[in-house]
Nucleic acid binder design. Sequence first.
DNA 1: CGTGAAAGTAAGACGTC
DNA 2: GACGTCTTACTTTCACG
Lengths: 171, 171
Amino acid sequence: MPKNPTPRPPGPAPRERPLLDDVDRSLVAQLLRDGRTPNVVLARGAGIAESTCVARVRSLRERGLLAGVTAEVDLARLGLPVQAMVAIRFSGHLRADVDAFAEEVSGLPGVVATYNISGTYDFLVHVAAPTPEHLRDFVLDNLTGRRGVAQAETSLVFHVKRGTDVLAAAP
Amino acid sequence: MPKNPTPRPPGPAPRERPLLDDVDRSLVAQLLRDGRTPNVVLARGAGIAESTCVARVRSLRERGLLAGVTAEVDLARLGLPVQAMVAIRFSGHLRADVDAFAEEVSGLPGVVATYNISGTYDFLVHVAAPTPEHLRDFVLDNLTGRRGVAQAETSLVFHVKRGTDVLAAAP
DNA sequence: CGTGAAAGTAAGACGTC
DNA sequence: GACGTCTTACTTTCACG
């Protein structure tokens, strides 16, 4: 493992330089639209040679900017037509309880994602279930009853639409 | 285009048969973990021949079970360290306003996803911004001021953890 | 429908500028 | 760092069980 030239002390946002030039930006944008975009197309789109493109993408991966690639599935057609966002509020806010929550809940069947948030609620749990009954059971069995959980408010998710231009907000 | 043997009349959930056998399940699960999993590995994992695997995956795509493949990015490292979930409540609930909301908002820079939900709020907008100031501007400029929007409650997103076993809930 | 083997295509490593 | 070429590995097509 190559050690970083600047060991960057613990801090929130790595805000040194452009960090991403126009080429990187183009590559990330393309891979965001289609994670299986072939290297040739990637290279043409960014205006660089194929071999250079391989190197750039690898660099992006090694620097952690590109985390991974995942398939997008239609949960309804997979037999999970009932989706919900469950807002969770903690009572004691014990550090141990809060920390364990996301970790444990993310591994439960049907959990799409867990959001640790500020405000009225502490967590949002995005779940998918085969039927409303399954959803109810999931909430009662896995969320409401959990240590430290004070309240759970369930909202049905009618539709999810992914953003198409997230990157445009990056400096 | 091959026409469907069963034109399936308008209805909510396609709940005919297994719809997915064990092979399909294995393929989807693998592609969920890594959308770039090579066909060879996919085939071995599912216990089928490579050519069969190609056919199965294509079938899953054509049936709409596999929608697409997208790269996972580290928003913070991309210069968007401030994430928020903005809960939106509508006033009049005009069909036109509600319909247009998700469509338009999803295209705005910084928007990760838009959730149309039931309950106290009508929408959740997941956004990413470079700084808290940018977030504030985004909410005021693009959400609060929008036609039909009565209230917007912003919660910072500290951490997002994707579920690791969504499929296990499928029947 | 599933399979094996051959043809077509893309990805990754190397030497050079 | 970026490039072009070459080797390797993967995907895909096809005739067949």
